[in-house]
Computed example of a mutant assay.
Amino acid sequence: MSLLSMASDVLARFDQVEAVLESRFRGRPSFRVACPHATTESVLAPFLAEIDVPIVDLEIVPAAEVDDLLGGRADLAVSSLVPPAHRRQIAIATVPIMIQARDVRTRFPGAEYGDLESMTHESLVVPRSGVGAAVMSAVAHLAFLMPVRDVAAGSVAQAFAANGQGYALTTEPLRFGLDAIPARANGVPLTITLYASWDATHYATDALEDVAADLRSWLQAHPTWPDSAEV
């Protein structure tokens, strides 16, 4: 093990000890959650505003980095990327991916879904997250190539769509005067799964599972995306 790896491991263990001491002082666990900015805005912040759970702060990082924080700066990770197999995890929601643009209802008049097959000459804008991965996978299975541009976040994709620079495929709540329709490819609605995951050796693994279950239950009653989802 390199000196840098050893130092990182020591710091992670120190953070865990500090969390245990803080929990004993407060009389209940004190958890920090790693999540992307979009998940903070549309899921966790509204959840924390209504439900009293032992979460004391959020660590906001790109989706690809949330798992790296477990065992150190964060106790729980929430994102749309599939957690590694060695993590304890539960699926907390299945979220529809929406095509968003100001003219989307004109583009798909009277339709229940927007089929990607009908958008061969359109530019699609997706966030670099589980949403983007799902769209890229769906497009790869079509019989033709489609122009797909990935950007930093769903809100950025929405901004470009509002400015007429393509159609955003995202799960964020509507803004910028956009309208939305559920996306579909090869007759299958496009969705992502939102996961909560944590270290199986965490000192409070049962309490973390309770928090994840509370979040799942809250999302069942309060979906925060433009259309309903299954859990």
Rank of each mutant, 00 (worst) to 15 (best):
G72R: 13
T193L: 03
Q165K: 11
R24L: 15
I97L: 09
F176L: 06
S217F: 02
S228N: 13
T205V: 13
A45L: 08
P84S: 13
G132V: 07
A185N: 03
A134E: 14
A63K: 00
S137R: 14
D214G: 01
A221V: 08
A180L: 01
H141E: 12
A153T: 15
M98S: 14
M146V: 15
A45F: 07
A185I: 02
L174M: 09
T40S: 13
V151T: 13
P109K: 04
G164D: 04
D103G: 00
V78S: 05
A200C: 10
S8W: 05
V17R: 12
R105P: 01
A63R: 00
V188C: 09
Y195E: 12
F160E: 14
V139G: 12
L169I: 05
P223R: 08
A229R: 10
V53F: 05
I55V: 15
A74D: 07
A140Q: 06
S8I: 08
L70E: 05
M119P: 03
A138D: 06
F160I: 06
P189W: 03
E41C: 03
D57A: 15
D199A: 14
N163D: 15
M119R: 01
A77F: 04
T193I: 08
V125W: 00
Q220A: 14
P46Y: 02
F25W: 11
D199I: 02
Q100C: 10
F14I: 12
G166C: 04
Q100Y: 00
F31P: 08
D9H: 05
R88V: 11
I99Y: 01
R216G: 09
A157S: 14
V231L: 14
D9Q: 12
R73V: 02
A185L: 02
G114W: 01
V20L: 15
I51K: 08
Q158Y: 01
E172P: 00
H222K: 09
A157L: 08
V66Y: 04
A200G: 12
G132S: 11
L169G: 06
G72H: 11
G110R: 01
S5W: 06
W218T: 03
